[in-house]
Design a protein around this nucleic acid. Structure first.
Length: 488
DNA sequence: CGTTTTTGACCGGCGC
DNA sequence: GCGCCGGTCAAAAACG
């Protein structure tokens, strides 16, 4: 029980990315800290679970540089009280005290080392399991929807279908580790990995190489992330700066569709479309497309891992399983506590088999149930913790286009329905959810240049009532994903 | 005065 | 080939 709680804390911590951020209190590393007691109580140290450089065991005990993180008062290792740095305890009467401290430090370091090892092992298991699921999904797709693939092979873009799958596998396999291990400094990789595929170039295959190499055509198969949310504002503030460059009346919808372009960096190819639902004008549908070629603002970095998982899920076609697994991955296999308690399950994802771009829709417009959410979720993880599954992931393409409905692979791992409902209600209740989710989606598209604090998103969720658009669409860098994201 | 929004024109894909 | 449609461009207007 207690172990479960700690696992959840660790997971929340890992998810938040705080352990990867370097902007923690630098005073912790200053030997001449005035108030050592204060340090013990309130200082935030860093736990580097994965860096090979920061081995818990330090030969030079006189310069022990502990890398322990205490996340507030509720973070894990709450009971850990240790001296952050021992710099030559000169006093004689302090020898015993120093020895005691050293012993304690060693014990703690050993424990941390064990935790580190455990988490690494966990990560490997999750990745492996993820890959297995990926293969299963592909098998299902090949067997059940093989006809569609054949049909698309006749089209110019369909030649990349196999390459897309390969890419999807690669993305899915690397997403989790990338987020957990690389995170902050993986911008270059993201940018190099995510092909810049401006829509403008989509139909202009002037380059002969692109026509010959299927992989080069991958960029032209974008995934879209679409979000449906209830909002009175013209757009959702997702942390990015947008410039409106067009507006059109879409067929079958009296509400105009607005086109926005990311202006946070010159040449950023990310674009989004905002349109109100014809049936319910209170529902705002925002569709993101493209990858950011610049660092993302703080508000857009939260849930990067989650959204990356969603994008990977979309691209890989494994709708539910990937998301679930990735989101709950950090502690999923370790104790299974967090995995079993976390509200990720009732997601149904579909991929459009006929659309040029696979599209995933997050529909957050379902009215919340009066059920009160478990307080521990709200207090401990905050609304962002639920973003990933918040509601439903469904296909955006409501037309007659054939869609591939992927089975829920969770099976027996599914959470109790009441728990799911509780979480869903919690998500819907939170006013910050929309913005946070939008930022997360933006992260997916933008490529996860996460050098900012995830917590900022919680404070940056104001809906931009002023039109003109500034909604944040920072996206993490998964290649070519277009996401339709709808929130309540 | 620089930036953003508006809006009609333009372009390419697609179906008939 | 023609028309429809979605998406983009770019000049003018609006805004701060």
């Amino acid at each position: 029980m207690e172990e479960h709680t700690q696992d959840r804390r660790e997971i929340a911590f890992l998810h938040s990315g705080e352990f990867l951020l370097g902007d923690f209190d630098s005073k912790d590393h200053q030997p001449n800290e005035s108030s050592e007691e204060h340090r013990h109580k309130s200082s935030i140290k860093e736990v580097d679970f994965f860096s090979p450089k920061s081995q818990p065991y330090d030969d030079d005990i006189g310069h022990v540089r502990t890398t322990t993180t205490i996340v507030g008062s509720s973070g894990f290792n709450d009971d850990l009280v240790m001296v952050n740095s021992c710099h030559g305890t000169s006093s004689d009467d302090g020898d015993d005290k120093t020895k005691t401290q050293i012993i304690r430090l060693k014990l703690e370091l050993a424990r941390l080392h064990e935790e580190n090892y455990k988490l690494k092992h966990l990560l490997d298991e999750i990745s492996e399991s993820y890959n297995n699921l990926q293969r299963r999904v592909l098998l299902v797709r090949q067997t059940q929807v093989g006809g569609l693939h054949k049909q698309h092979e006749d089209t110019p873009q369909a030649g990349s279908s196999q390459a897309l799958e390969d890419m999807n596998n690669e993305i899915a396999a690397t997403t989790l580790k990338r987020r957990l291990l690389d995170d902050v400094d993986d911008r270059d990789m993201h940018q190099g990995r995510s092909p810049k595929t401006p829509r403008l170039d989509q139909n202009k295959s002037n380059n002969p190489d692109e026509q010959q190499n299927p992989h080069d055509q991958l960029p032209f198969r974008k995934a879209r992330v679409s979000v449906r949310a209830r909002s009175d504002a013209t757009t959702v503030n997702d942390g990015c700066q947008w410039r409106k460059y067009g507006q059109k009346m879409a067929k079958g919808n009296p509400c105009p569709r607005a086109y926005y372009r990311c202006t946070m960096a010159v040449g950023c190819p990310v674009r989004k479309q905002v349109q109100r639902c014809a049936e319910d004008t209170t529902i705002l549908t925002t569709t993101y497309e493209g990858n950011h070629n610049h660092p993302l603002p703080p508000s857009a970095t939260a849930m990067a891992a989650t959204t990356s998982a969603a994008a990977a899920m979309l691209l890989s076609g494994s709708t539910t399983s990937n998301l679930h697994q990735t989101l709950s991955s950090p502690s999923a296999t370790s104790s299974s506590s967090f995995y079993n308690n976390f509200p990720y399950t009732s997601t149904i994802a579909t991929l459009s088999a006929s659309a040029p771009f696979p599209t995933i829709t997050l529909d957050l417009t379902n009215p919340p149930r009066p059920l009160q959410p478990p307080p521990q979720y709200l207090s401990q993880y905050g609304p962002a913790a639920f973003l990933p599954n918040a509601n439903q992931i469904r296909s955006i393409n409501n037309n007659s286009n054939p869609q591939l409905l992927l089975p829920n692979l969770l099976g027996p791992q599914a959470l109790p329905r009441d728990m799911v409902d509780s979480v869903r209600a919690a998500i819907a209740m939170d006013p910050n959810f929309t913005a946070a989710l939008a930022a997360a989606i933006s992260n997916i598209i933008g490529g996860g240049n996460n050098d900012n604090n995830n917590n900022d998103i919680i404070n940056d969720n104001k809906v931009d009532a002023k039109s003109g658009g500034s909604s944040n669409g920072d996206s993490p860098q998964l290649p070519q994903s277009c996401t339709t994201f709808s929130t309540n």
